[in-house]
Design a protein around this nucleic acid. Structure first.
Length: 130
DNA sequence: ATTCTGACA
DNA sequence: TGTCAGTA
């Protein structure tokens, strides 16, 4: 039996990664078309290594956190390349996302409170016809 | 069977 | 991104 099901493998086919991460092969090809992935080729067939798999994980994490593929692409660039002043670029994006989420939260709270007020006033009213 | 590219939704 | 087509 294979002791390490946790893929300690070196090479992966597009279908392997798609299955492992629950995404479509179409999505993986799409990410490549956007420059987020650059798997090797054996002829025309894509061959993914651990490094590509690691990048895919980062892509999916970025998506989960609500970042655009564009932002994730920028992040990936400094991920392997020379990271230093560029790390600030990531921090900016994180701050942006944070601010966006906080704005949304504030708006939701405002709306929730308004609805609660309406409900309160309504319940104070005598039974109305309907 | 699988994958690939391109096109359309 | 899904899906379909026509290949290799």
């Amino acid at each position: 039996m294979s002791p390490a099901t946790t893929e300690s493998r070196d090479l992966f086919a597009i279908a392997d990664l798609a299955k492992e991460f629950g995404i479509s092969t179409r999505a993986i090809r799409f990410y490549e078309s956007k420059g987020l992935l650059a798997p090797e080729r054996v002829g025309a067939t894509r061959v993914f290594r651990r490094r590509d798999r690691a990048r895919l994980i980062l892509i999916l994490r970025g998506k989960r956190l609500g970042f655009s593929l564009r932002d994730i692409s920028d992040y990936l660039s400094l991920y392997d390349a020379n990271r230093s002043q560029q790390v600030h670029l990531l921090i900016d994006k994180v701050d942006e996302r944070l601010a966006s989420l906080e704005r949304q939260r504030d708006d939701l709270e405002t709306t929730i409170n308004e609805l609660r007020e309406i409900k309160k006033l309504t319940s104070e009213q005598p039974a109305r016809s309907r």
